[in-house]
């Protein structure tokens, strides 16, 4: 036995190596940030940490252009890994008169974006009301968000989201639909879906609108039916989805329809009773 009081109760150094005292003296990084000046001599030099992965997440946002507007849909689930943690998360955000922003990915970053957009809206209102500026329209919101997202990624501190912006062009008539994600990558299309929806929903949406320009032939009813069907299909196969969702329809006649607490209708589960472990019966 080693009689050195410092070594009492310790596993044998010869076998396990010396105790790493830095473990006991490590501080949480948040503490260190607040006390950077006073504790710099005693703490480990743990670096400042940025988001490296999302925590509470929202799954796909799906969207379509039709001849006189856009439709967006997103379910109300906030997942904590594979745990369905929150079931009342609203992921569609109205900005200004006629713009809708759908956000998937990290929910805390979503809430940060919500605040950023609110600030944009209030500052922009000042210009619009007193200086006769342009109204805040979808292209402006998208451009602004893409700068925020690219800037954050360039500082290696991303907002962990994929965002769809829907609304109208500066003429107020032509439907506008564009995407931006955590890397700052942007694109426009007549059919856009984020996350799992990019794999599962986009083929269904593109079946309705095969060529980008063809959205001018699609009615609101057709677009709506297609989106509702895609939400049901996503609920079938996306394990991080919910059958409760919000749906926004924006039309160029000024109508802005925000529907909440919709359900995936017409689910067909008849096959399930024959599959072991699928239905309610446990055999």
């Amino acid at each position: 036995m080693n009689h050195d009081p410092f070594k009492w109760g310790r596993p044998n150094d010869a076998t396990y190596g010396a105790y790493n005292h830095h473990i006991a003296q490590a501080t949480p990084y948040a503490y260190e940030e607040q006390h950077a000046s006073s504790t710099s001599t005693t703490t480990s030099s743990f670096p400042k940490m940025n988001t490296q992965n999302p925590i509470i997440t929202g799954t796909s946002v799906i969207s379509l252009k039709f001849k006189d507007g856009v439709i967006l849909a997103a379910d109300n689930l906030g997942s904590y890994g594979s745990l369905a943690r929150f079931t009342n998360i609203e992921r569609l955000i109205r900005v200004g008169k006629e713009t809708i922003v759908g956000i998937s990915g990290d929910i805390s970053d979503l809430q940060q974006i919500e605040r950023i957009l609110e600030e944009l809206e209030t500052t922009q209102e000042v210009y619009d009301n007193f200086d006769g500026g342009d109204d805040l329209k979808a292209p402006h919101v998208h451009e602004y968000l893409s700068r925020v997202m690219y800037n954050r990624r360039s500082n290696m501190n991303p907002l962990w989201n994929a965002i769809v912006v829907g609304g109208f062009d500066k003429d107020g008539k032509t439907p506008f639909l564009k995407y931006v994600d955590l890397l700052g990558v942007t694109y426009g299309s007549s059919t856009i879906a984020t996350g799992f929806g990019a794999h599962l929903a986009v083929p269904l949406l593109r079946q309705l609108i095969p060529e980008d320009k063809d959205y001018v032939n699609i009615t609101e009813e057709q677009a709506r039916e297609c989106i509702l069907n895609a939400m049901t299909v996503l609920f079938y196969r996306d394990a991080r989805s919910l059958d409760k969702f919000s749906l926004v329809t924006v039309k160029n006649d000024g109508e802005f329809k925000f529907e909440k607490e919709l359900r995936c209708e017409g689910q067909r589960w008849k096959f399930a009773k024959d599959i072991r472990g699928y239905g309610s019966a446990q055999q």
């Binding site: 990558v185 694109y187 426009g188 299309s189 060529e211 980008d212």
Partner: peptide
């Protein structure tokens, strides 16, 4: 393997 957009 996903096509984001056909005209960007």
């Amino acid at each position: 393997y996903s096509i984001n957009s056909r005209y960007e």
